[in-house]
């Protein structure tokens, strides 16, 4: 498995796309830190960037990668290898290449300009998001037979998680204004990995505002650090479940 991962990562790094992704992130990060003046402002800008760009790139790149290396996957499938090993190696290879790009493109500027708890949370969260959306992309790819459908599904997933879900959440809160909504709003957030990532950063960045929130449940979650544990655990679930589903589908798939 390790050798396949090695091969996949090497293959991706030889291509120019991940290099371009790294360059883009670097330019954007340095730009945000230098233009804003204040490091907090830079981090806020970087958060928006990470929440939108990381899922999009992970989804599209991973789906396209799956279809492009379809023949290689077929070849490997003919070898005495478990199919789960084969797919997991592919997924980890892609995710590792993407996280390497993030570590250089976002991690390095944060280390230089804002080596704070908020900064490190932002790095950790962007790495987790890469894994989540690579897994989701592979799930979409193994489910859809042709490339157009696969990429289309990936784009739809991005649109839903990045924008639509929050819109629906806001609408639901608006409709149910008169009810106690603590649990509901937390549940709705858990259904979106981007929201979980955002909340993890908020717990560092906007803790003053969050502490002003009326509600015993939130107090409990924020005050004790169990909020971080909860969000991180659910986010880990967002990696594990799509991964398992993709493997399950791939093992039964007629290549």
């Amino acid at each position: 498995m390790l050798r396949i991962v090695q091969y996949v990562v090497g293959d991706i790094l030889r291509g120019k796309i991940v290099l371009g992704y790294t360059g883009f992130l670097l330019v954007a990060s340095f730009g945000l830190f230098n233009l804003g003046g204040d490091t907090t402002k830079g981090l806020i800008g970087l958060l928006s960037l990470v929440l939108l760009v990381v899922p999009l790139v992970s989804l599209v790149f991973a789906t396209v990668h799956f279809y492009n290396s379809y023949e290689f996957i077929e070849l490997l499938a003919a070898q005495p290898l478990h199919r789960s090993t084969l797919l997991l190696a592919q997924i980890f290879g892609v995710a590792l290449a993407l996280t390497a790009a993030l570590l250089v493109g976002v991690g390095l500027p944060i280390m230089l300009y804002a080596p704070t708890a908020t900064g490190f949370t932002l790095i950790a969260v962007s790495l987790m998001l890469s894994f989540v959306f690579t897994a989701l992309a592979f799930l979409a790819a193994v489910l859809a037979r042709d490339k157009a459908r696969g990429v289309g599904a990936a784009l739809l997933l991005w649109f839903y998680f990045a924008l639509l879900h929050d819109g629906l959440t806001l609408y639901a809160l608006f409709l149910l204004e008169d009810f106690p909504l603590e649990g509901v709003s937390l549940g709705l957030l858990s259904l979106n990995p981007i929201d979980l990532a955002r909340v993890l950063v908020l717990l560092q960045m906007d803790v003053s505002a969050l502490m002003g929130y009326t509600g015993a449940m939130m107090k409990e979650l924020l005050g004790t650090g169990s909020g971080v544990a909860f969000a991180a655990a659910v986010l880990a679930g967002w990696i594990a479940v799509p991964l398992a589903a993709a493997v399950w589908v791939f093992r039964r798939k007629d290549l």
């Binding site: 806020i44 924008l163 929050d166 806001l170 608006f174 909340v199 908020l202 906007d206 505002a209 929130y213």
Partner: peptide, 20 residues
């Protein structure tokens, strides 16, 4: 203004949608 009216919306702080 939204948070003033529905405090639970605070959890959407810094969401890209809210930004737009």
């Amino acid at each position: 203004m939204l948070v003033e009216r529905m405090p639970s919306a605070l959890l959407l702080l810094r969401s890209p949608l809210v930004h737009f």
